[in-house]
């Protein structure tokens, strides 16, 4: 296994641990599951370091791995156990409760995003929070760009309908 990549991937993991964990929380709604997802991502990424193409975005690659582990392993297992994603409903408001108490509108934003269907939620997260392009998001999520677009449009329509009173973004 080439070691140059190995060290690049390790450094990238170190740099992006918090972002990976946050993505895990947004996906699973559970901090424990986020821990597991990050751990599995570290293992998988180092194991496959030779597949990383230098010069491409390492964070995108890591998130693709995390997403794939979530979809194919952890999420599937949760559904099989009948556990579903029930705790996702409330979980984004769990952590940082103190921070949230002083910031009602932040809590509201998190709660509304968290209430979106999972596919819309993670697409919104990748594009509007992580700043991914549609193409990058479609690669991470392994769906066509048209699907990214329709998820975002549906999410925006839903959030706009909810947010008339709370948000006051100026028109351009």
């Amino acid at each position: 296994m080439p070691t140059g990549n190995h060290e690049t991937v390790r450094e990238g993991l170190r740099q992006h641990l918090r972002r990976l964990w946050r993505y895990g929380v947004v996906l699973s709604g559970s901090r424990d599951t986020a821990d597991d997802l990050v751990q599995a991502t570290c293992l998988r990424a180092l194991e496959r370091a030779h597949q990383f193409q230098p010069g491409t975005h390492l964070d995108r690659w890591l998130m693709t791995i995390l997403h794939s582990i979530w979809m194919n392993e952890i999420r599937a297992a949760r559904y099989r156990r009948g556990q579903g994603l029930v705790d996702a409903e409330t979980a984004l408001i769990f952590d940082g409760a103190a921070a949230i108490e002083t910031n009602i509108s932040a809590a509201q934003v998190l709660a509304r995003v968290q209430a979106l269907p999972e596919a819309q939620r993670e697409t919104v997260f990748l594009v509007y929070v992580e700043g991914f392009s549609y193409r990058e998001a479609s690669a991470v999520l392994d769906v066509p760009i048209g699907t990214v677009m329709s998820r975002l449009a549906a999410a925006r329509a839903k959030l706009a309908a909810l947010g008339d009173d709370a948000q006051d973004r100026p028109e351009e």
Binding site: R10, L13, R14, L17, R18, R19, W21, R22, V25, V26, R31, D35, V38, Q39, C42, L92, D95, G96, A99, I100, N103, S105, A106, A107, V109, L110, R112, V113, V124, F125, Y128, V129, G131, A153, A155, R156, A157, K158, L159, A160, A161, G163, D164, Q167, R169, E171, E172
Partner: peptide, 27 residues
């Protein structure tokens, strides 16, 4: 639709909540 874009700042709370020491030790 423009008002339906959630701001990204509230998600910083989750970055701040990450168990950094544990994750770094794990890595």
């Amino acid at each position: 639709l423009e008002t339906g874009r959630p701001p990204s700042e509230p998600f910083d709370i989750l970055l701040d909540a990450a168990p950094v020491e544990r994750l770094e030790a794990m890595l």
